[in-house]
Write a protein that binds this DNA or RNA. Structure first.
Length: 113
DNA sequence: GCAGTGACGTCTT
DNA sequence: GAAGACGCCACTG
């Protein structure tokens, strides 16, 4: 399979696209959902390449602490915070307030289905 | 081909 | 409880 290399990336994009509006998830959650034990970094790397694919709400993906670590990777760091606030989230000092409240886990979605 | 780096997370001290 | 170090895999230089 020539696409075996980018297979993980595609999986990450699929999960990120499934994130409902007003919710956020963490790299570890996606990695865990995909079965990538220590793939947290891989997920982050995949997100770095997310610019290669549209419709990727990367602003809904934050680290385990709910901090907008990758905000600087957007066209403008402010954009990530603005987008999250536009979805009803509260962000203070690049940190999501009540992160656990807005936290969304892909496993939960699959469980509901 | 080797070494360094990276949108993180978990373990150990 | 907090801080530091290590590990994982993939990409770039």
């Amino acid at each position: 399979m020539k696409n075996s290399k980018t297979n993980h990336f595609d999986l990450v994009y699929q999960v990120v696209r499934l994130i409902p509006r007003g919710k956020v998830t963490s790299y570890g959650a996606i990695a865990n959902y995909l079965g990538l034990k220590s793939g947290a970094r891989m997920v982050g790397y995949a997100m770095n390449a997310s610019h290669t694919v549209p419709d990727i709400p990367a602003h809904r993906v934050v680290n385990r602490n709910g901090v907008l670590t990758g905000k600087h990777h957007f066209g403008h760091p402010e954009e990530m915070q603005q987008l999250l606030e536009a979805e009803g989230l509260k962000i203070i000092q690049d940190q999501i307030q009540d992160f656990k409240t807005y936290f969304w886990d892909p496993n939960e979605l699959e469980a509901r289905l």
